[in-house]
Amino acid sequence: MRGFLLAVATLWQREIVRFYRQPSRVVGALAPPVLFWLLIGTGLGASFHAPGAAAAGAPLPAPGSSYLAYFFPGVVILILLFTAIFSEISIIEDRAEGFLQGVLVAPVPRGAIVLGKVLGGTTLALLQSALFLLLAPAAGLPIPAPGALAELGLVLFLLAFALTALAAAIAWSLRSTQGFHAIMNLFLIPLWLLAGTLFPVAGAPAWLAGVMRVNPLTYGVAALRRSLAPATAAGLPGPGLSLGVTLACAALAFAAAAAVASRRPTR
């Protein structure tokens, strides 16, 4: 057990040290989402009607439901996703550069290697999203009470862990970063788009709404909206279901990453 924790700790620490020694990564994971938020948020804001407001036929802006506020939790998720991708893509680079094989022949369980790597990515994602959360008042979002803040922390952690573990599972099974970029564009970005981040399930055509309802990230977004921007959470899945699905996804994604990492190479 001590060996397991020691391995997790040292791999976690490596992720953090590498991150602050490569300042471009901070900018790379934080700048695009913030830019999207400002451009898309401002541009779409004029023609957007929040689900509640649309049903009532009332024009925007309603307090706390401007598009900048509606889009804000979606951008938080995008920051988590980008940080997860950038941190776990290093698995492929570590493999190509040779660092990984040194770790793989050490007497360390594969689960410890994956956990250290995923917790490292999770920590970075939480730090980056925390920076962005400082802008919440600018989006017109209320400052949460301490209780809600703890809930927000838990939701963010589960989301960050799930997305990082998902990125890790993908990266462990790939040999090129190009392949990872393809999966990012064809799978991860659509996963984010169709989770109620950019537009609500309520207004979508039936087939799209169906896809969004089976997208597990929809439930993570719902949980985040409840704790961060309750005014934008009307009509979303309940808190128990949202948290439960997100927790299950985090566990599943980690199990998948550990399973992929435990395969014995024959090539």
């Binding site: 020691l6 391995a7 040290v17 050490a106």
Partner: peptide, 25 residues
């Protein structure tokens, strides 16, 4: 000791050795 370098180039020599040592308990 593999043919391909297995050191983390962003870490110092000491940090690489510390990392290695912890992997071995």
């Amino acid at each position: 000791v593999f043919q391909a370098p297995s050191l983390d180039r962003k870490l110092t020599a000491v940090e690489n050795l510390r990392h290695q040592g912890r992997l071995y308990g």
